[in-house]
Design a protein around this nucleic acid. Structure first.
Lengths: 154, 154
DNA sequence: GACGGTTGTATAAGCTACCTATGTAAATCG
DNA sequence: CGATTTACATAGGTAGCTTATACAACCGTC
């Protein structure tokens, strides 16, 4: 392994960047076996699942797409029974979107499949490697979450 | 891998699978903020950059898209000056695709931008947090690489 | 060498998923 | 109350994927 870089140098970001790149490869190349839902659709459903019903325009902003794109996506998702729309109580212009049970079930199923695939992949590691990976990944997750939290207020 | 692992490995695998799944989702979120090149375009250019010229059909297989998709993508990339096409010397039917200097420059620029953005994000952390994240990332990287290695399809 | 089967790519048509532009109606503000 | 802003829908366009199809090069067998 490379030398530990000193603090506060540009090299700090190299290992982190490399890890994030590899995790992305993991996500894209190894875990996405299906294309029944686009990334934006997936994240939109996940967001609604976690945060509850939300206005269409807020969803668009959160997913960094334009409002007409989100309008169309929500229409498609509604057609597939994954979300439902309701008028907003406080603003006659607004549409509030919520995830349906079918939407929730689909998210859960996709999550299950991904974790299953990961468990298979992990089976190729030695017990020692697996133990080490468990420890390190467990440490990394809260740190990454914190990093994303502190920069999410955009 | 198909043999039953030791008694506590299944639980370990599932626990770390959940963590890796979360990490993968976070990592892919980070990627979704760029849109001048699609994921497949990016990965195709990267592949050509790293491995040298390749047949169109091989590119399609590597990126898990159909051949007509890859044909169209290569046509678009060629139009943008990022790749060039040549007849294959050994097979009159085949097209060999290679990345141009402009394509290489674009990859480098995108890489630079990603690192820059990450450096900004890291700048929001305290020195202690940064040190910790870097340390853990440094341990994580070889393990992650090994996982990707041992599960490479080809 | 002829022929049938396979392989490699291009093109067409269709759908999703994004964009910008535009329109309509509700809400807000002075 | 009128002007402006806000929230969403619709239209038209491109990218990016799919399947279906067509054509030509290649390969193996007779």
């Amino acid at each position: 392994m490379s030398d530990t870089p000193s603090a506060d140098t540009p090299e700090d970001s190299q290992a982190v960047a490399a890890v994030l790149d590899d995790l992305a490869v993991l996500a894209i190349r190894r875990l996405s076996t299906q294309s029944d839902l686009s990334l934006t659709a997936t994240m939109t459903l996940s967001y609604l699942d976690r945060n509850g019903p939300e206005r269409l325009s807020v969803l668009a902003a959160r997913q960094s797409v334009t409002q007409p794109s989100m309008t169309q996506l929500v229409q498609r998702l509604e057609r597939e029974g994954l979300v439902c729309r309701a008028a907003d109580d406080l603003d006659g212009r607004a549409v509030r979107v919520s995830v349906t049970d079918a939407g929730r079930a689909l998210l859960a199923e996709r999550r299950r499949r991904r974790r299953e695939r990961l468990a298979e992949m992990l089976g190729t590691l030695s017990p020692g490697e697996l133990r080490e990976l468990t420890r390190v990944a467990g440490e990394f997750l809260p740190l990454l979450r914190r990093l994303l939290e502190t920069t999410a207020d955009e």
